[in-house]
Design a binder for these strands. Structure first.
Length: 494
RNA sequence: GACCCUAUCGUCUAGCGGUUAGGACACCGCCCUUUCACGGCGGGUGCACGGGUUCGAGUCCCGUUAGGGUCGCCA
């Protein structure tokens, strides 16, 4: 089996110069003699790229599917081509409008706008593009005509009420842009009966048929999909051949596995894109992370602007092996995006995360909310962590876990809190600086470290031993709230 | 069972015959420090195994092993 060079560029395979690097001396001379020959012809200028994401609306958008969509989108943007969304809703039983909506909202959240496809989840609703309908459930006539065509050509036949396609018995060679040249032989089971069903006995066309017909009718030039379809591709190529149309270029991208290396299925943690939307992830961070699975900018950088990814992204450099999903690294990336996020956008996302966690901020002064949430901006990896980190700002009564209560509140800390209370009460200007001065002074007077006062104060104010910068949080809470909380804590000190 | 793909630190990756095998996340130590962090400095960990080819192999070839995928009247 011949494996083509991994670094083969986007140039059409027909180019005799694609391996010029391997014969540099020879071609250097050749290029000199033939100035019209370019080492890297620009693929996009030769052909207008049309790619599609074709999910089945199952009520779920798999993170791997999201990455497939992302890679298609990136390739379209990279080449100046067209990104198409097609809904493969041939299985009527489990397809609902809300299931389509999950796909649409997921893609929009990730920022993957499509150039052609539905604009709403309604199969008969508005759409963009001239190659519609973009719902397979509305393309029955097209499939029927194509099946008739195959029958006429003697390439399909009735069998027990279904229609079967005459699959070639010879091995089929797939020329994959990522995997390379793959010679696919029939399996032993297929050898017994190579022909496969393209229309079920109930009249419904099956995936292999509709997928190929749509790619053909929609002039899809590149099929970028998960590697789980690599073996099926032989069937698809055979179908294209049967229709007398050259197949598109294929690019099978590696799969995303669980951390333990097992296949990521629906039920696995983090398998659904919706979970990221709900758990405080920033779409750019998720997209950035997804890009790094199976693709690399090769310059030791992890955080990349979308525009940069678009200009660098290409199919031949995609890795061939599966990647395990590293939730910890995603969280780190998300933190990087949150901390460098523009203030107002952060506030918007932070407020909605708090509301999602059950906090009603509608009656809280906006300035207070903003100041409070801003103290946590660089401290959360997911926006959903805000509820526990900043919750104390928005609660009237502190609750203390038994362990915290036993450890932090005792006669000694009570004494500290009492002095803290009178000193803070006397403070005219309740600012972080002045509050810090008070702590410093008290510690100096008692010949103890600041932490002797810092710790009880933090626990009294926030209910926790960790949190935002103490002096700022005390300032933001304001004198009356702080005094009230000190009283509450004092009552627990015995 | 058959067919197909894959194999560099724990994870994501750089590497395209000659490297002290680089980076990131995670982890450990020290410094800074009002907590948790951030930041700074330093550290450990890797070419699955076995054969070839070659002066020289992480890199090319073959095999083994392991992982993943496919073989539906699912998509």
């Amino acid at each position: 089996m011949l494996k083509p060079a991994k670094m083969q560029c986007s140039a059409p395979r027909s180019s005799p110069f694609q391996h010029y690097k391997e014969h540099s001396e020879f071609f250097r001379v050749l290029f000199f003699l033939l100035p019209q020959a370019r080492p890297r012809p620009n693929y996009s200028s030769i052909m207008h790229v049309r790619v599609r994401f074709a999910p089945s609306p199952t009520g779920f958008l798999h993170i791997g599917g999201a990455r497939t969509a992302l890679f298609n989108w990136l390739y379209a943007r990279h080449t100046g081509g067209t990104f198409i969304l097609r809904i493969e809703d041939t299985d009527a039983a489990r397809n609902t409008e809300s299931a389509v909506n999950i796909i649409i909202e997921g893609l929009r959240w990730l920022g993957l706008e499509w150039d052609e496809g539905p604009q709403t989840s309604n199969a008969d609703g508005r759409s963009m593009g001239q190659a519609g309908p973009y719902f397979q459930s509305r393309r029955s006539a097209i499939y029927q005509a194509r099946v008739e065509e195959l029958k006429m050509k003697g390439l399909a036949y009735e069998h027990e009420g279904a229609v079967k396609f005459r699959m070639p018995r010879e091995p089929i060679t797939i020329n994959d842009l990522v995997v390379g040249e793959v010679r696919r032989e029939l399996t032993d089971r297929e050898s017994k009966d190579p022909d496969f069903v393209i229309v079920r006995s109930d009249g419904q066309p099956v995936f292999h048929l509709v997928n190929v017909v749509d790619d053909l009718e929609m002039d899809i030039t590149h099929v970028i999909r998960g590697e789980d379809h690599l073996s099926n591709t032989a069937k698809h190529i055979a179908l294209f051949n049967a229709f007398g149309t050259p197949p598109p270029r294929y690019a099978h991208i590696p799969l995303i596995l669980n951390t333990d290396g097992s296949k990521m299925s629906k039920r696995d943690q983090g398998a659904s894109l919706i979970s990221y939307m709900q758990e405080g992830f920033v779409p750019e961070a998720v997209a950035n992370y997804l890009c790094l699975l199976g693709w690399s900018p090769k310059d030791n950088r992890e955080i990349l602007a979308q525009s940069e990814i678009i200009s660098r992204f290409d199919l031949p450099q995609i890795l061939r092996h599966n990647a395990r999903f590293d939730f910890t690294k995603l969280r780190w990336l998300n933190w990087e995006y949150i901390r460098s996020m523009e203030r107002d956008r952060y506030l918007k996302l932070a407020v909605s995360a708090m509301e999602q966690a059950g906090f009603d901020l509608s009656k809280v002064p906006p300035d207070y909310t903003a100041a409070a949430l801003l103290t946590c901006k660089e401290k959360v990896q997911q926006l959903s962590e805000l509820a526990s980190l900043a919750g104390f700002y928005f609660r009237d009564d502190m609750t203390f876990e038994e362990s915290v209560r036993a450890k932090e509140f005792n006669p000694e800390s009570g004494a500290c809190l009492l002095r803290l209370k009178s000193s803070l009460e006397a403070l005219d200007l309740f600012s972080a600086d002045h509050i810090q001065q008070v702590l410093k002074r008290l510690a100096a007077e008692s010949y103890v470290k600041m932490s002797v006062f810092v710790h009880p104060l933090r626990v009294a104010c926030t209910g926790s031993t960790t949190g935002p910068s103490l002096y700022h949080l005390v300032e933001i809470l304001g004198k009356s709230r702080v005094i009230h909380r000190l009283d509450q804590a004092l009552a627990l000190c015995g």
